[in-house]
Design a protein around this nucleic acid. Structure first.
Length: 429
RNA sequence: GGAGGCUUCGCCUAGUCUGGUCUAUGGCGCCGCACUGCUAAUGCGGUUUGGGUUAACCGCCCAUCCCGGGUUCGAAUCCCGGAGCCUCCGCCA
């Protein structure tokens, strides 16, 4: 949810952000109205409660003569308080709904427009030239690394088995990613893939993208589409000491996506699947440090792609193509020779304080005089959260096979992966 | 899955039977000040969280005793529902 103080100070900024996203600017006015209504309801209820409290207290000390009158007044107030509290609850709910309807405020500098209006920030490496390239499905079958036919037999479309060297590749990538993350100071985490509704909602995945998410109705749990969900929920309802920030986690988990509305896209192979494993970076930082952290996450993503010796480009995703929680998003897209194009491999989003507000993750403000007194000016403030893919395994394997295919049908193994693949420089059928 | 116990403002804890003086006790930790010629001791003060009032502060007001309902003029306390934790039994990688 967005900052209500900022909304009051500068509603035009929020309206402009809505326009950039192609969202409805009038939702901003609805939110302002809901906030006003809630304030009114709260102050009315507060005043009534104060009066009722005083009268109730006087019941016990009232003389027998006065008592009936006092009691009558107390009962009257009690009924009024009940009404006022019902109104307040309704106003609270309305405000929350209005808040959830508005996505994060777009960062300054984000390109306007939609999916095709990204700006390319960098192009790295040399695009390999391959005559008559085969796609990763073909190569994966030849290597007996990927079995989509049996994936479909057992689980349905968009499922796969990784076998033999395919399975080894997954473990190699996980190891390489975790090794890099640890070296950079991330805490390695194995995160749950099932989460409660409030965790899912807090990360912003139950809004516009609710249809993308698997839900277990019998248990009221959701399957995560990314371990970002669990890593964001990890510190929910906590107050973090400022000295312990930044907190950085590298989460490994399975990810599940319904891929509703992507019929016909990437139907072959393991580029777009219902289930894959992923190593995700997640940072909690002070709000003012979010932009810098975003650049750091991007740098770590690039470092990983460099280790895989892939040609890729970095794009600045346009406002209309941002997720609900993101203020800005950079994607790294690697070259797929068989498709003759760049395809997204990793993605990093700056969610500023948007997720933290929903999940109630704050940092303690220190009193300027160090007295430990509570000072509003030094009050607790939401942190910023950021996430970035380090390695989405299935898609990365697809890219490696495609990108590093050789004329003789073998696949080149980047040096960084060899320690986990028995030192092999080439994968051969 | 069955039975029982527990959940209080960082941690521990008093209070719950017998509803109002709970505006929640004490200890630990932490912060500040004072003092002592040494980061120890002692003393004093402060220390849940959210919201409101204020230019800001001080102060004051409302809510908050796991969560949600209910009874009552009044609930940490009584009733109902739920969650989490613990113990025992059963089952199980």
């Amino acid at each position: 949810m967005i900052d209500l103080k900022l909304l009051r100070d500068d509603p035009d900024r929020v309206r402009e952000s809505q326009r950039l996203r192609g969202a409805d600017p009038s939702l901003v006015d609805a939110l302002l109205a809901a906030d006003d209504a809630r304030r009114t309801a709260v102050s009315r209820a507060d005043a009534l409660r104060a009066e009722q409290k005083a009268v109730s207290k006087s019941v016990a000390s009232a003389s027998p003569d006065e008592r009936p009158a006092v009691l009558a007044r107390a009962k009257e107030l009690s009924a009024q308080v009940k009404d006022a509290e019902a109104e307040q609850a309704a106003a609270d709910a309305a405000l929350r709904e209005a808040q959830l309807a508005i996505p994060n405020i777009v960062e300054d500098g984000v390109p306007p427009g939609g999916e095709d209006d990204f700006v390319t920030l960098a192009t790295v490496g040399t695009v390999p030239t391959v005559d008559a390239p085969r796609d990763h499905t073909e190569i994966g079958e030849a290597l007996r690394a990927i079995d989509t036919a049996r994936g479909a037999k057992v689980s349905g479309a968009r499922f796969y088995f990784l076998t033999g060297v395919g399975a080894q590749l997954e473990l190699a990538l996980v190891n390489l990613a975790m090794e890099q993350a640890s070296a950079a100071g991330f805490v390695p985490v194995i995160a749950p893939a099932l989460v409660k509704p409030e965790t899912m909602e807090g990360t912003g995945f139950l809004g516009a993208h609710a249809s993308e998410v698997y839900r277990l109705a019998d248990d009221d749990l959701y399957l995560v589409g990314t371990s970002e969900v669990a890593l964001a929920g990890y510190h929910s309802d906590e107050i973090l000491d400022r000295e312990e920030l930044p907190l950085r986690y590298a989460g490994f988990s399975s990810c599940f996506r319904r891929e509703a509305g992507s019929y016909g896209k990437d139907t072959k192979g393991i580029i777009r699947v219902h289930w894959f494993d992923k190593v995700e970076m997640f940072s909690y930082v002070p709000a003012e440090d979010a932009r810098d952290e975003h650049q750091r996450l991007l740098a770590w993503e690039r470092e990983f792609l460099d280790k895989l010796e892939l040609a890729y480009r970095v794009i600045d995703v346009a406002a209309g193509d941002l997720g609900t929680s993101a203020a800005r998003k950079y994607d790294c897209e690697a070259w797929f020779p068989s498709q003759g194009t760049y395809r997204e491999l990793t993605s990093t989003s700056n969610c500023t304080t948007f997720q933290a507000r929903r999940l109630n993750i704050r940092t303690r403000g220190a009193a300027p005089d160090g007295s430990g007194r509570k000072l509003p000016s030094a009050g607790n403030e939401p942190v910023a959260t950021l996430n970035g893919t380090l390695c989405a395994i299935a898609r990365t394997i697809a890219c490696l096979l495609d990108h590093h295919q050789q004329p003789d049908g073998s696949v080149y193994v980047p040096a960084a992966l060899r320690p986990w693949l028995g030192g092999r420089e080439l994968l051969t059928p």
